[in-house]
Design a protein around this nucleic acid. Structure first.
Lengths: 153, 153
DNA sequence: CCTTGACTTCAAGTCGACTTGAGCCTGTAG
DNA sequence: CTACAGGCTCAAGTCGACTTGAAGTCAAGG
C-alpha cells in the first residue's frame, strides 16, 4: 500500500487516531493527501510525531509547537520569529534540564537515604545530608529557587 | 507577624492564592494552622511549593506528587510504596533528561543552521548536517524514537 | 462610620488536550 | 449478501489544573 493509514501511524506513534486528527485540526500536522477520502501519510510524519511528543513532555504547548513548525507562513520576517521562539525555548529547556538533574539527585538520594517519604527527603536533601530524617542540619536552605516570575495580570 | 499569610506565600512562590487553596483542597499541601480563620504558613511551605512546581514541569501530576508526599499514611508497607513510585519516577526523569538533551541539540543546531523553521531543521538535524535546508542528505533518518509504548485500551 | 484590602467558602467556569458518540461510507472475508 | 473492520465528520464530553464570582468576615485608616 502506498502510504500509511491513520491507524498505522497511530499505532507506530503510540497514539490514537483521534489524536492525530486533532493535531491536524489545529494545524500541528499538515493535512495529508487522501485516497478515497482516507488520509495517507508518509513516514516522515513519524519523526514529526516523535518530536511533538517529546516537546510536549518538555512543557511545550501544542500552540508553541505549531509555531515552531510553520512560522514561515504569514508575513513574519521569515526565520526571525522562529529564532526568537526557538532561543526562548532553548533557554527553557536548559533550565528544565537543570531542574531535572536536581530532581534526579533528590530521588536518588531519597531512595538511598532512610526517609519514609519526600517530606523527610526534601529537608534531608536540602540539608545535603545522606542520612535519615535526622533532627536537622543547619541553615543552607533555599537552593533550587529559579522559576520564571511571569504570570502577568 | 507570626507566619506567612496565603498572599505572602503566593507572592513568593509566584502563584495565586487560589492555587494554594486548591493544592490544600487536594491534599498536596497540608492544611496549615489558622489565626482568626486565616491560614498561617511557615517558610518550609516554600520548599514544598518549589518542589511541586519543578515536579510538575517534569510531568508529574498533582496526584503523583501527592502520593510522593504522604505515602506514609494508609496501611502501605511504609516506605515500600514510596520507593516503588519514586524509582519509577526516577526512570521517567532520566529518559526525560535524555530527551531534553536531544531537543537542546536540535534547537541549538537549528539556531546555528540556516533552516527557516523546524520542518527543515528536523530533517537537517536527523541527517546530522550542519548546513542549510539543502535538497536532502541521504538516508539515515529515524533516530530519536524512544517512547514508552504504553497507552493501553 | 464606612470604606478598603486581604482573607474566608463554595460553586461554577475556563483552558488545553484529547476522547467519545452518532451517523455515515467502503472494501474485504465468510 | 451481510458482517465487520477500518475510515470519515462534527458536536459534545472529559480530565487535570486552576481561576473566577458571589457572598461574607475582619482589622486598619481616613
Amino acid at each position: 500500500m502506498d502510504g500509511l493509514s491513520i491507524g498505522q501511524v497511530a499505532r507506530q506513534a503510540g497514539l490514537r487516531p483521534s489524536a492525530i486528527r486533532y493535531y491536524e485540526s489545529i494545524a500541528v500536522l499538515p493535512s495529508p493527501r487522501r485516497v478515497d477520502g482516507q488520509r495517507r501519510y508518509d513516514r516522515t510524519v513519524l519523526d514529526r510525531l516523535a518530536f511533538i511528543q517529546i516537546a510536549q513532555r518538555l512543557g511545550f504547548t501544542l500552540t508553541e509547537i505549531q509555531l515552531l513548525f510553520h512560522n514561515r507562513e504569514e508575513d513574519a520576517p521569515l526565520s526571525e520569529r522562529w529564532r526568537g521562539l526557538a532561543s526562548r525555548k532553548l533557554a527553557e529547556v536548559e533550565t528544565l534540564i537543570d531542574q531535572a538533574l536536581g530532581v534526579r539527585r533528590m530521588l536518588t538520594r531519597g531512595l538511598r537515604c532512610g526517609c519514609a517519604d519526600l517530606l523527610g527527603c526534601i529537608d534531608c536533601v536540602i540539608a545535603n545530608c545522606d542520612s535519615p530524617p535526622g533532627p536537622t542540619a543547619p541553615g543552607h536552605r533555599a537552593k533550587m529557587r529559579g522559576k520564571t516570575p511571569a504570570s502577568g495580570t
